[in-house]
């Protein structure tokens, strides 16, 4: 089981992700509605993994990834965004994201990405 921080400006999408992650045996330890809150909550909660939207008010997701990774080089972050063009994926990976899921996502795709990442980095999965 992993402790996950879910970052998305849409309450609906946070609810969907929370439901998928909980069904997959993981625990959602926090939620953030923008990148700035995500940076604060990451430092406070130290989650095993983060799901991160890109288009958000206050601070967008790629900048949040940069700031989290600047202070926590081992942070594991999966982008979950509607913006799936190659340039956006490259920017996210260069910022430090480990995977990129395009919305609307399938339940299996989310769990597979999360488990693969945890497994690859030696974290026991559910």
């Amino acid at each position: 089981m992993a402790r996950v921080l879910v970052v998305d400006d849409a309450a609906f999408m946070r609810m969907m992700l929370k439901s998928i992650l909980q069904k997959g045996g993981h625990e959602v330890v926090g939620e953030a509605e923008n990148g700035a809150v995500a940076v604060e909550k990451y430092a406070m909660l130290k989650p095993d993994l983060v799901t991160m939207d890109i288009t958000m008010p206050v601070m967008e997701g790629i900048e949040a990834v940069r700031q989290i990774r600047a202070n926590h080089a081992d942070a594991r972050i999966i982008m979950c965004s509607a913006m799936g063009q190659q340039g956006m994926i490259i920017q996210a990976i260069q910022a430090g994201a480990k995977d990129f899921i395009v919305k609307p996502f399938q339940e299996d795709r989310v769990i597979e990405s999360l488990n693969k990442l945890l497994h690859a980095e030696g974290k026991p999965v559910a």
Partner: peptide, 28 residues
């Protein structure tokens, strides 16, 4: 509240996917 949030997210997904298709035409 969830319907309100979905209305925004639906538009976000449509615009995001359109941006991806647009990128495929060499435009940004």
């Amino acid at each position: 509240e969830m319907l309100q949030s979905f209305v925004g997210e639906l538009a976000n997904m449509i615009a995001g996917q359109a941006a991806t298709l647009f990128y495929g035409r060499g435009r940004r």
